[in-house]
Amino acid sequence: MKIKSYLSFNGNAEEALNFYAGVFNGTISEIFRYGDYPDMESPADYKDKIIHSDLEFNGCTFSMADTMPGTKTDFGSLGHTITVFCDTDQQLKDIYEKLAVGGEIKCELCQPFYAKLYAEVVDKFGVAWALIIE
């Protein structure tokens, strides 16, 4: 069994996709746009928006897309957190610093009783991240 996160954005999925590719040193393996599907009804200004994309990094895949206009999405007041189990202190610190740009630090880098290193960040897109080394 495996689980894949699928993040939906309000017209800025491409910005998010490129941001996360930089954060995680990932590769965009798929990107499909609404305009690639002429039989699908979508507004003319949505032809270049993302209907589906995949970002690959460290054996993980995140998918992202733009919702149709009029469908407002958000990540819900910390109701959903993506936890990243890092391999090294430096890896965690690098990801933490990149996610924090334009975002909000919820828990600064610390060494709680349950982890070697831990931090929480809500990034500029409103996605909550927990970074941990057990």
Results as ranks from 00 to 15, higher is better:
residue 18 N to W: 08
residue 24 F to I: 06
residue 34 Y to G: 03
residue 23 V to I: 09
residue 25 N to L: 02
residue 62 F to R: 00
residue 66 D to G: 06
residue 6 Y to H: 15
residue 29 S to M: 00
residue 41 E to T: 08
residue 44 A to P: 05
residue 59 G to M: 03
residue 63 S to G: 03
residue 66 D to I: 02
residue 70 G to Y: 01
residue 38 P to K: 02
residue 58 N to G: 01
residue 12 N to K: 15
residue 62 F to N: 00
residue 11 G to R: 04
residue 23 V to H: 06
residue 33 R to D: 06
residue 32 F to R: 10
residue 35 G to F: 08
residue 66 D to W: 06
residue 57 F to A: 01
residue 29 S to W: 08
residue 61 T to P: 01
residue 43 P to H: 10
residue 70 G to H: 01
residue 34 Y to A: 06
residue 10 N to T: 09
residue 14 E to K: 15
residue 40 M to F: 15
residue 26 G to V: 06
residue 61 T to H: 03
residue 47 K to M: 09
residue 33 R to V: 00
residue 9 F to M: 07
residue 68 M to Q: 09
residue 25 N to V: 00
residue 8 S to E: 09
residue 39 D to E: 15
residue 47 K to V: 03
residue 51 I to H: 03
residue 34 Y to S: 07
residue 9 F to N: 04
residue 65 A to D: 06
residue 63 S to F: 05
residue 51 I to D: 04
residue 9 F to D: 06
residue 14 E to W: 02
residue 42 S to L: 02
residue 59 G to I: 03
residue 14 E to C: 11
residue 5 S to F: 13
residue 7 L to F: 15
residue 31 I to C: 11
residue 32 F to G: 10
residue 61 T to A: 01
residue 57 F to G: 00
residue 24 F to R: 07
residue 15 E to K: 15
residue 58 N to P: 00
residue 69 P to G: 10
residue 45 D to R: 04
residue 39 D to L: 12
residue 20 Y to H: 09
residue 4 K to C: 15
residue 17 L to Q: 11
residue 47 K to T: 10
residue 63 S to Y: 03
residue 48 D to V: 02
residue 63 S to E: 01
residue 8 S to D: 13
residue 42 S to C: 12
residue 51 I to R: 01
residue 45 D to A: 08
residue 16 A to H: 12
residue 47 K to W: 01
residue 32 F to Q: 12
residue 42 S to E: 04
residue 9 F to G: 11
residue 37 Y to G: 04
residue 21 A to R: 14
residue 66 D to N: 13
residue 68 M to D: 03
residue 43 P to Y: 06
residue 15 E to D: 15
residue 62 F to I: 15
residue 11 G to I: 12
residue 53 S to Q: 04
residue 11 G to A: 11
residue 69 P to Y: 07
residue 9 F to Q: 07
residue 18 N to I: 07
residue 13 A to M: 14
residue 44 A to G: 07
residue 65 A to Q: 04
residue 53 S to W: 01
residue 34 Y to K: 05
residue 37 Y to S: 11
residue 50 I to M: 04
residue 56 E to M: 05
residue 44 A to R: 12
residue 27 T to A: 09
residue 16 A to K: 14
residue 20 Y to R: 11
residue 37 Y to C: 10
residue 42 S to D: 08
residue 11 G to M: 08
residue 15 E to A: 06
residue 40 M to L: 14
residue 15 E to N: 13
residue 11 G to P: 13
residue 29 S to G: 06
residue 17 L to I: 12
residue 26 G to H: 04
residue 24 F to P: 09
residue 66 D to F: 01
residue 42 S to V: 08
residue 56 E to Q: 02
residue 20 Y to L: 11
residue 41 E to Q: 14
residue 33 R to N: 05
residue 24 F to T: 06
residue 33 R to Y: 13
residue 59 G to Y: 00
residue 47 K to P: 02
residue 69 P to V: 09
residue 5 S to N: 15
